[in-house]
Design a protein around this nucleic acid. Structure first.
Lengths: 105, 105
DNA sequence: TTGACACATCGAGAAAAGTTGATTTGATTT
DNA sequence: AAATCAAATCAACTTTTCTCGATGTGTCAA
């Protein structure tokens, strides 16, 4: 459930999770649906432990969820978290073009 | 001018700039318009060089612009960059609730 | 039950980011 | 011109993040 206004630590947490290219790549790969770790390893041509690490960061931030099926783990984007991120970001958007120049101190 | 789709490095760059609470605080303070550095130093109760460092990170990412007037520097949120960020994030949002479970490998 | 597999986790090292105090720069006041 | 002030930059240090190879854990096949 997305919080509406200015949750500073949460913004930092979510952005932090998306602050690394490897993780954004992962998210991009998950856009067309659930993938298992082996699919991602192939697609991203990266070491298994590295991938596992980044998946964990995304998971800790709530941006993905995982599901186990036998030996495989499947990861899915968490729609709620992305909506939450959008709302939080929207709350940071400057309302209009500011013309008023500030005086100082 | 906001790019539309999946610019992975740019997402990482923007998110990185917002991945630190201090910087999100700064953005929050700038929401009601332009501020000089001294205002921010007071408001955030932080050292001057620390603030200057974080302002530079925000500026390098394009999220703020600065203007000099005499001895003072004024910082303003860059509306375009925030819109760009919103668009980029929107492009990462999973389209709908996925029910299809992936087969593997 | 042994071996192979998929993945998570660990430990150590490398790299990057953040903090702090001192110095520098450039503008203003006296 | 000298002193003062706002803010940027620097250098040294601390902390965090990332990477890589190794090990651990649970699952399945032979």
């Amino acid at each position: 459930m997305p919080t509406s206004t200015l949750d500073v630590p949460r913004v930092a947490e979510l952005c932090n999770a998306l602050a690394d290219e490897a993780r954004v790549e992962i998210v991009a790969r998950l856009l067309d649906g659930e993938k298992c770790v082996c699919d991602l390893t192939d697609a991203l041509e990266t070491g298994q432990s590295r991938l596992s690490y980044h998946l964990r960061v995304l998971k800790d931030a709530g941006l993905v969820t995982d599901r186990r099926d036998g030996r495989w783990s499947y990861y899915t984007l968490a729609r709620d978290a992305f909506l939450e991120a959008e709302h939080l970001l929207a709350a940071l958007r400057p309302r209009a073009v500011r013309t008023s120049k500030a005086g100082c101190c």
